[in-house]
Amino acid sequence: MNHCEGPDIGLDLGSTAAKMVVMDNGKVTEKYVVPSHKWKELLDKIPPVCSTYSTGYFRSSVVAKRSCTEITAAMYGAEHLLDGKTMDVLIDVGGQDTKVIDNRKTDFKLNDKCSAGTGAFLEFIAQYLGVKVEDLGTLHHKAAGGSVNINSTCSVFALSEIVSHLVEEQELEVVIAGVHHAFASKISRMIPDDVESVGLLGGPALNSGVVDALEQVLDCEVAVVEPPQFVNAVGAVIYGVTD
């Protein structure tokens, strides 16, 4: 895939995290992630290269050979990382928005005016509960199938429900499983009918509780596109060097 001597750089400057991949012959050889406001730190890690490609909320902050939206990047990145397999639907859970991309129709939906189905929601809840966001998956599985109903579609009101469950002495793990189900339910409203295969990407895809809840709510297998945080950075490169 290289068309000149150095490797290609893919930068995904998202709303909460900035991700960078170094790609050589279609393979990811290095990857980095920093908080978005520190994205310039990534520039120090860039080796002598021929081309940089960008995507993400702040993609225009960097001088790139070519750039595209994260929706297009997700489509190109997922197909490349899945060795050419095209999933019916991709779910890209970002820091502040969630995108559902229907590969069958080249159609997409984004969450509107609400953070309840985004990474920000999980961070908000984890912070309140005093647990690390990366531990949410482990805690979810300790609930052994137990869960609570969280009906509110608003993050702040959902927190009130969570507090009520804890005051009623529900176990933390069971409450966290309920949080993941509420999260998955919110996303499921954006999923089109008759979906048979779903690819999941974005930082929250590292949370196995989210994957488990989505599989239950959607009643189908949810494949995490590895490495989920870097799919769009890879997609930026693939899109950039295509045509």
């Binding site: 909320y57 595209c68 939206t69 994260e70 929706i71 297009t72 928005d97 080249t106 159609d107 997409f108 984004l110 509107d112």
Partner: peptide, 13 residues
């Protein structure tokens, strides 16, 4: 920005 992102992605699609 959110509306603009949708328009940009629509253009690309």
């Amino acid at each position: 920005r959110q509306i603009r992102l949708r328009l940009e992605a629509f253009y690309e699609s």
